[in-house]
Design a protein around this nucleic acid. Structure first.
Lengths: 353, 353
DNA sequence: GAAGCTATAGAAAACACATACAAAATACTT
DNA sequence: AAGTATTTTGTATGTGTTTTCTATAGCTTC
């Protein structure tokens, strides 16, 4: 079905294409009389401007590429929602690319995104990034990274304060009096994984607890590895009495293992997780966790990329957003008053122990 | 930073733009000698084809619009993943639009999608759809609907068998011997809400149970309404001894209420939910639920839209995908052996009661 | 050696729009 | 009334591709 073109409405309205364009974009004065002719022609032909032609002409696509490792991870899906809603306000659309943390997919997508002439790029990829990013710099399309930035890039990045977050999680466990606190980390090759490990180590150090290699297990942020690493931890001689787990999926996996093997939380093993979820307070026991401001992260990323598009030569910005310790019961807090909403406040950190 | 154009590589290689295009697309024979010149020119200029120009010329954007009510809902985010992965195989990208079930947003997005000349549309909107869809039909862009199709449209739709799913969930409750089985439905103005209610009613009828208006509460598929409707149910005189809840978010909300008020599941109230989740088996108690094949739904939708793009004149297709009853403990099954994986099989339906 | 064929390369016309510039029409001065 | 300023409309070109149609050169075949 052939769609009407600008030219067609112009001839139908008996004016030039330039005027039609001008009434559409309100870019010049045109008399009401002519305007009306144009509008009714548009109506009659059911004309819809061809944005791809416009994009070609004005050299902007009004679309932002979004490179994300796993849209099905609730943390990311909330980030995406934040991005989407903020971008929509400025009439930008988002092109969604799920990279699965695969360098090949990332490179492939990057290629099509640059080919499609996206106006900007938001990337939240937990994997290692390939060569293709290097060539991105030359293209000059603005980018903002979420939670991690390849070492070789000079670009905007907005991070949650991973070190601090992990620190406060481990600290909470320490104050509870646990002595053998383990950690299940993400891949230490990537910054979120590494930073959260750093926070953990720093907390132990500050409280004079000697760390043990046996108690740090490197997972890869998915459910399966949470399950496996938890299992390793509980089957070895040097068992922990508490564990800090570096993201939501691994916490889920760990919980599955613990329940399967009948290990009681927090009596036999206390746990503090990372990332909050809607379901975190209805599992058994409700999970004490480090909450990242996922939605705000997305909103901020969107604003930043928009700012970059408008003004390309502002200098690099690194933003840190703070996490929040959400206290529930998996750490050992509040057993006598299990569903008090009072327990959900950060301020109670000290009091509850 | 100006990007190199086809014409520039042509002049650098000393050939015409036509030949460059031909070597790029392998659409005509060109001698190896010339090919090499072209390739090295491309390399030297770091040339990236401008896909929007190509789109304008060949009249296809290679992008599929995706209208979805809430990307943060785990059910949808998995659907999206299925769509994305399948589409990527054929080098189609997806433009993500989160409608929040708002007719205004839907119409607005529809407008930009059609303007951007998407090659197809996948819509999974739980809300009522506005007028704009009507005008969509005239444009001739292929559409496939997920789980619901506006009455006035003649379009492909792929559904899960909602009636059957709700039937089997309710039936399971009935076989347990519960006598006052309530339902929290979605909005009955939309088909998923209505169909699941129908399945529920049909089950009651088949087993000779008279239904009570007091036991059917209409929510709107979000956490909050699950909470509120559960509350209503438990605070009224005519309390149920079991409840069937029509989606994941409302089940979550209902669980929150039940835990807060110390109502024990399944002893005081048995529950069967709709939609499966990763966390469904670590909550307390693990949720018996009707699982929709979310990922497969997405894959199928992607394939269907692709087929429609290639061949526009095949006739309308309505696909039903079957749900699966995942038996855990919230219904009352398997209390003595709580984490047996055996319990997760459909076949045990009868045996477990 | 002319006619016919094949293989390769190029010229130019779309594709649908925006915009700089020119021109015309109107309004305003004096 | 003519001249000038201002508003309104039109012309023409450019945006980066693909593709149809032509043209040329190198063959074969009679």
């Amino acid at each position: 079905m052939k769609r009407a073109t600008l030219k067609e409405v112009a001839t139908l309205a008996g004016v030039s294409t330039a005027t039609v364009s001008n009434v559409l974009n309100e870019t010049k004065n045109v008399s009401d009389e002519v305007k009306n002719k144009v509008f009714s022609a548009i109506q009659e032909l059911n004309y819809q401007p061809n944005i791809v032609a416009k994009s070609l002409r004005v050299q902007e696509s009004r679309i932002i590429g979004l490179l994300i490792s796993d849209i099905a991870n609730p943390f990311f899906s909330i980030v995406v929602r934040g991005i989407e809603e903020e971008l929509a306000k400025s009439d930008y659309s988002i092109l969604l690319c799920n990279t699965d943390s695969s360098v090949e997919k990332e490179d492939k997508y990057l290629k099509v995104l640059i080919g499609k002439r996206v106006d900007g790029l938001i990337v939240s990829s937990t994997g290692n990034t390939g060569d293709y990013f290097r060539s991105m710099e030359k293209t000059g399309v603005p980018m903002v990274f979420l939670n991690r930035c390849p070492d070789f890039m000079v670009s905007d990045v907005i991070m949650t304060n991973n070190i601090k977050g992990a620190y406060s999680g481990t600290e909470h466990l320490i104050r509870h009096g646990y002595e053998k606190i383990a950690i299940i980390t993400g891949p230490i090759s990537i910054s979120t994984g590494k930073d959260r490990l750093t926070g953990y180590k720093r907390a132990l150090e500050d409280y004079g607890i000697t760390e043990s290699d046996e108690l740090v297990k490197e997972g890869n942020f998915d459910i399966e590895s949470g399950y496996m690493k938890m299992k390793e931890l509980m089957e070895q001689d040097n068992k922990p009495d508490a564990v800090f787990i570096s993201n939501n999926s691994m916490t889920l996996g760990a919980y599955k293992y613990l329940k399967e093997s009948g290990i009681s939380i927090p009596d036999q093993l206390a746990v503090v997780g990372y990332d909050d979820s809607d379901w975190a307070d209805i599992v058994d026991p409700p999970i004490t966790t480090i909450k990242q401001p996922a939605y705000e992260l997305g909103v901020h990323a969107a604003r930043l990329i928009l700012a970059r598009i408008i003004n390309k030569q502002v200098k690099r910005e690194i933003t840190y957003m703070d996490t929040e310790l959400i206290i529930r019961h998996s750490c050992g807090c509040n057993k006598e008053n299990p569903y008090s909403t009072e327990s959900n406040k950060l301020e109670t950190t000290i009091g509850c122990i």
